[in-house]
Every structure is written in C-alpha cells, then in structure tokens.
Design a binder for these strands. Structure first.
Length: 753
DNA sequence: CGGTTCCTATTA
DNA sequence: AATAGGAACCGG
C-alpha cells in the first residue's frame, strides 16, 4: 500500500508569535500540499499566506482546513529551510517572519477588510484578497506563410511583416522600438492570419539595455596569486573554508574575488557576492558582466518588487550562477553554492535593524558552513572580531599588503589641533589646499558631520536648542535657515534671539560640512567647490552627478561626510584633508575607536589612486589617541593589537558576547515599569539557571526618546553565546509585558546606544 | 452624547 | 502582524 500523503501539516505563519500552526488538508489538495510551498489558510478573522514546513501532529483537537496551495513547486528547499530555522532560533524571531523576509516582498496573498459604501448609503465591510505574485508577460510575434487569398499589406504593416520574416520571432517591445506605436497594424496582421502572437513570461531585467564588452583576467601580483592559490585549493576540497582577505585600499581585492569565483564556476558551482551599499552595486555588476558570460542576478532594495521577484525566480530556476546583492541577498535561493564573498566586511550596513535583526556578514559564515562553501571576507580595515578569529585560527588569513603597480602609501601629516578650536583649517592644511589648487590637482575634504553648526547655545543663559522628541541638539542648516534633528525629522526655523531669555547673543558651535564649504569659499574664492553628503545627494542620481563632476575635472575641492570615504575611486585626487579626525571618537559605543580607525583609513585610501602618490593632512584634537596614531601611520596590525588589549581589559567583544533588549512605547511610565519588570525577571532567571550573564540596566539610551517613543534598554553580556541564548530564550518564554510596550531582542547588536 | 482614540486578546 | 470589540476620553 503506498504511503498516503499527509492530511495534517505544520505551517509557519508570518506573525509576531513564537509558534507554528497545524492545519488539515482536504483530499483534493493532499498531493500538492508539500513542504516549502505556500498555502492560503484561515487565520483568526482573516486569510493569510503560510509556509508548509512538513507533516504535522494530529494532537490538536479542532483543526481548520487549508484553503488553497499557492505554488506548483516549492519556493524553499529543505537545505534552505534548515538555514532559515537556524536564523529564527539564533535571532529569537518567529520562523514565519524569517521565511517571509527571505522570500521576495509582495508575493503573499492576504485578506484585507475594508469599508465599502453600499447602495443605501450605509457602509459594509468587504473582504478582499490582495497581493500575490506578479509574473510579467509580453507578446511574442512570429510571421506565418500567407494563407490563400491574402495579399501582403502595404505601408507599415508590410514593413513589420518583412522584419518578422527575417527572424524567428520578436517581442512586442522590440517591434515598438523599431517602428514606433503600431498596435493597429499588428492587430490587422493577426486578423489576416499573417502573424501569430503568443504571451510569454518575461523577466524585468534592471540591466536589460546595457551591452557589455568582454574583458579577460588581469595578471595578478605575487600576493594576489598566493591568495588565489589558497582559495582554489580550499574550493577543491568542497569543505567549509572561511578566509579573511585583508588588502590595503587599492590592492586589487576585486580581482581576487573575480578569479576565485571563476574557479568555483568552472567546478559547476555558484557564487554569492554581498556588497554593503546599493550605490556600489552598479559598478561592481558591470565589472562582473564584463568578465563572465554566465547568468548574473542582482538583488538589492533599489529594485522594484517586480524586478526583485523576477531576479529571484531566475536564481531559483538555476538561470543565474552569480548573485550580487546587499545584505538580504544572503537568502538568495542559490543551489550548489561554492563561494560567498562579503566585500567590505566591516561595514555596518550588513546589519538589519528592523524585523529580523540579522547580520549578513555573520550569516555568510553560517550559510557557508551549512553549504560547505568557501567564505571570503574582504576589507582593508577588517572587524576587530575577524582579526581575533584569525589569531585563534578560526579564519584563514590572506594578505595583500601592497597596492597594485607598487604605488606607495600616501604620506600623512598629523596636525595637532588642540587649543585651536576656532579654526577650520590650520596653516598646513590651508597652505596645502592653495598649493594643490595652483597646480591643478583635486582635493578631498572629509568631515563626518553634516549641516552648518551642531548646536545653538545662548551666551547669556546657557540655553541649548534640543529636539523635543529625541533629546539631542538640533543642527543648524544655513541653506534652509532651520535647525534640524538628525534622528527624527523635526525642525524649526532659525531663531534670531535665544528662545529661553530672548537675548540676541546666541552662538553657533560645532562645525559641519556646510560650514566647511563656506570657509573654503572664503579661503579660495576661485576654487570650484562641491559638497557630498545626505543633504546634497537626496534626489535621484544626485550621488552620480557629483561623482561625475569630480571624474570630469569640473570640481577642484570636494567636501563630504563618510559618503566620500567608501568605495568610490577618485583618480585625480592628490590631496586629502581630514578636517577633524575626532568627530566619531567620543560617541558612547565600545566600537568608536574601531569605527574611527576604519573611517580614517578608508579616507586616506582615497588619496593617490591614480599615478601620483598623493598627500594627506589629518587635523586632530587627539593626535595621541591610538586609533588616530595608527591610522595615519598605516599601522593596521598596531591598531588591532591595542584595540584587542582594550577589549580584553574592558570585557567587550570578541572577549564577551552581547545582547540588547530594547523596550519602547509612547507611554513613558508604562515603558519604565516594563523595563523594571524585565530586569527583575532576568535576575530571577539568572539565579535559577546559574547563568554567567551580566545584566546591565535597565538604562535609558542617551537619546531618552526617539521619534516620540520612550526607550529603555537592558544590555546583556556573557562569556559565551550559549549563556546568552539560554537566558534570553527563557526570558522570552516567561515575560508578559503590557501590550503598549514593544520588546525587541537584538543578539550581537552592533550599535550600543 | 456620539464619535474618536487607546488598549487588549486572539490567531490551529 | 492584523483585527475586532470594548474602555477611556472629550468638547462645551
């Protein structure tokens, strides 16, 4: 007797509940309802899309029946499901929500209740099913031999027919592109039986119109060749092999990625490349398209839902061997995965901070282990954690210590700015800017603070202008004549007198990029100056417009925030000035030194990527701080040694593991009570479990309120991840907070505020 | 007082 | 997460 298909199934539903649900399968759907497919199910008062996990326990008394099976083929393979189960367990988030995040957005059906005006004027609630996958189809035309008695039409119809005769078939967009609007002619041709039209599924391809010239692998220098050799050897063993590719800026990391991937593809496997920002994808995709003839898919948040869905389907069907994308691409449905590259692995944008709070860099290692793949973490300034893993032998170390073509590292002058707070440019930087302008060189000025002045303070009464929602100072933006909160979007018009005592002697302190721009105008009126920060790149293509201006030599001096530090090549830049290296050093985060070191090093790497070595001047109020000292002397190893000593001493990662519990809500008193209740429960559980977790808090974050919400935070610190998980899982099962308090659990939080 | 807004329980 | 039903709030 053949095994009968399961009539009871376990279904994960994308809701914020930590459990799965059991449904009955009616006879007619029994064969179709298999694991990895989506089903439409009744859920509470509505109908939702759920994900079939497998056969369910018949134990529950009354089960509802599934309504429909939504997919012909499973969307998720058993291996992917295992990975996603791991993600849900690790980040303590419901499996259904994790599955939803991993799949392209907008493919699920849900019932929506909405009020509809009835004929008699009263309103009726109507239930509508909304959403669902959108497959785009296009008509493909093909010419037929003319039936008896039909003559070839004249005019445009005839031209189209001749055109179609010369080829197998043509999609509608191609005909329109060639002949202009021609719907009536095509209709007539079909009526005459001269052509057939068939609707065919097409992909919305973000790079459809572009033509790529082919290039060939570059010749590697000795360091690159040595790194590649180890990657090739590891790839051939078909075992999990994680590496850190530590290459100084301009050392040719991308070429190593390309050739390692070429080797993986030659073994019939596939490759996944993660990049930190959308802005960086097009140039990297172009480089890949020039090198490889195989299918390349792109996944990032800049795509429309339709484009993303189509790229996802191409991958699922095995039509793309390479996937390039932002953090969510870690969930790409690639099979036979041979290598995962995480470019600029230190970037904070790999951390998802809403919904499932995953870290794509960490998940790359987990997925690589499950899929027995090579994982390649690349950076000029790796995470302290990665460096430590190398020292412990958990990560292979590949080093590219030299720039390609043996260009020297730029010479850096460190200028002590102590006691000279009023001056934006100290004499060395002012002189260097003038000199560089005189010889026609381009300069880059970096300051990681936008706006004109960071705060307004009254000289009479000491009043400081703050955001009513976020308890941070408001930054003055001169162009808009307003003070803005950089956390929420609150703003007020610039006052002319102190809002506290009406004294006219108000001072604007702390400078941002907008002020630096003004001071450059005053210092060098003949220079062509441009600024790149969130305020000047807001429109579509604003980013590209400024970069093009620099590339085409229409800009002499570019001022910018960290935006200019990341990834872009400025071949004509021969001077880099860091206006204040300390802006990021004093934020209350145990990673502030690491961040500052990374940022300064990345900025310095922008100098002299062309033929000239380039000159760099760094102004600092803390020239003796180890992050600044080691960054300006290009002493990466020196920095990591001191930073690791500091972390060991203070008990922070990688010598401890962290979790953060964020409690928030609009009612301050209720949130406070909730936080205290949570802290008490944690203490009890800690005693009962004899846990080694250290509980810090509840404390308010430095921003007591964010976007109008009160926030409390409890920080957990443990010597091992397992301690953290035991305590937090027990806590999550036991806590019963009032509904107005939202609890977010962040395992391995990157931000400490 | 009717009408909103806030809060809470529920989901197989 | 989304929903519905009920409590709380509210102006004049």
């Amino acid at each position: 007797m053949p095994a009968s298909p399961p009539t009871i199934i376990e279904v994960a539903i994308p809701v914020r509940i930590d459990q799965t649900f059991t449904y009955r399968v009616p006879e007619r759907l029994a064969v179709q309802a298999s694991a990895g497919k989506r089903v439409l199910v009744p859920f509470g008062r509505r109908k939702v899309t759920g994900y079939v996990l497998g056969p369910g326990d018949a134990a529950a008394a009354e089960l509802k029946e599934i309504i429909e099976v939504l997919d012909a083929e499973p969307l998720i393979t058993p291996a992917e499901l295992a990975f996603l189960r791991w993600v849900a367990a690790y980040y303590l988030f419901p499996l259904g929500e994790v599955l939803k995040t991993a799949l392209p957005a907008g493919i699920n059906l849900t019932s929506r209740k909405r009020q509809v005006a009835a004929a008699d004027g009263s309103s009726v609630t109507e239930e509508v099913l909304a959403g669902g996958k959108r497959v785009k189809t296009e008509l493909f035309y093909r010419s037929l031999s003319a039936p008896a008695g039909v003559t070839q039409p004249r005019g445009r119809g005839g031209e189209i027919l001749t055109f179609l005769g010369g080829m197998e078939e043509a999609p509608a967009h191609l005909i329109r592109q060639r002949f202009g609007p021609c719907a009536p002619q095509l209709k007539r041709l079909r009526e005459l039986g001269l052509v057939t039209a068939a609707a065919r599924e097409v992909y919305r391809d973000p790079f459809r119109e572009e033509v790529f010239e082919h290039d060939t692998p570059h010749i590697l220098n000795d360091d690159q060749a040595a790194a590649l050799a180890r990657l090739v050897a590891a790839g051939d063993t078909a075992a999990f092999a994680p590496f850190l590719l530590h290459g100084v800026t301009g050392s040719g990391k991308t070429e190593v990625y390309l050739q390692a991937i070429a080797h993986v593809l030659s073994r019939g496997k596939t490759a996944l490349v993660l990049v930190p920002e959308i802005a960086l994808t097009p140039q990297l995709v172009r480089r890949f398209k020039r090198r490889f003839r195989c299918g390349i898919a792109v996944l990032h948040s800049g795509l429309s839902d339709g484009e993303r869905f189509d790229e996802w389907r191409r991958i699922r069907r095995g039509e793309a061997e390479i996937v390039i994308g932002a953090r969510s691409a870690i969930f790409a449905p690639l099979e036979r995965l041979g290598i995962i590259v995480v470019d600029e692995e230190h970037e904070g944008s790999y951390k998802q901070s809403e919904g499932v709070r995953y870290h794509a860099r960490d998940l790359a290692l987990v997925r690589g282990k499950m899929d027995k793949a090579v994982v390649l973490l690349g950076s000029a300034t790796p995470l302290v954690t990665s460096f430590h893993a190398v020292r412990e032998g958990r990560l292979g170390y590949l080093e590219l210590p030299r720039r390609v073509r043996d260009l020297p590292m730029p010479a850096v002058e460190l200028v002590d700015a102590r006691g000279k707070r009023g001056e934006t440019f100290l004499p060395p930087l002012a002189a260097a800017l003038a000199e560089n302008l005189a010889v026609g060189g381009q300069s880059l000025l970096f300051l990681n603070r936008r706006g004109f002045a960071t705060y307004l303070v009254c000289q009479e009464c000491g009043f400081v202008l703050r955001c009513p929602n976020c308890a941070v100072t408001l930054t003055y933006h001169r162009r808009r004549e307003r003070h803005f909160c950089h956390y929420c979007d609150y703003s007020i018009p610039a006052p002319s007198v102190c809002p506290g005592c009406e004294s006219p002697s108000i001072g604007l302190l702390g400078r941002g990029t907008e002020r630096v721009e003004e001071e450059v105008w005053e210092l060098l009126p003949e220079a062509r100056v441009s600024r790149m920060d969130r305020d000047t790149t807001s429109g579509k293509g604003g980013h590209a417009r400024i970069l093009r201006g620099v590339a085409e030599g229409r800009i002499d001096i570019l001022i910018g925030t960290q935006m200019i530090a990341k990834g872009h090549d400025f071949p004509g830049v021969t001077l880099v000035g860091v206006v204040s290296a300390d802006a990021t050093l004093n934020i209350p985060d145990f990673r502030s030194a690491e961040r500052t070191f990374q940022l300064i090093t990345q900025v310095l790497g922008r100098a002299g990527r062309g033929d000239a070595a380039g000159r760099v001047i760094v102004q600092s109020l803390a020239p003796d701080h180890y992050a600044i000292r080691h960054a300006v002397s290009h002493d990466v190893a020196g920095f990591y040694a001191e930073e690791l000593a500091f972390r060991r001493e203070t008990g922070y990662p990688p010598f401890a593991f962290l979790a953060a519990l964020h409690l928030s809500g609009t009612n301050g008193a209720v949130v406070e009570q909730g936080a205290e209740q949570a802290a008490r429960l944690l203490q009890q559980l800690k005693g009962r479990l004899r846990s080694r977790v250290e509980i810090l808090g509840p404390v308010t974050s430095p921003l007591g309120k964010l976007r109008g919400r009160f926030r409390w935070q409890i920080l957990l610190k443990a010597p091992a991840r397992s301690d953290l998980h035991r305590l937090v899982s027990a806590f999550r099962g036991a806590i019963d907070l009032p509904a107005q308090v939202r609890l977010v659990i962040d395992i391995d939080p990157v931000e400490m505020m």
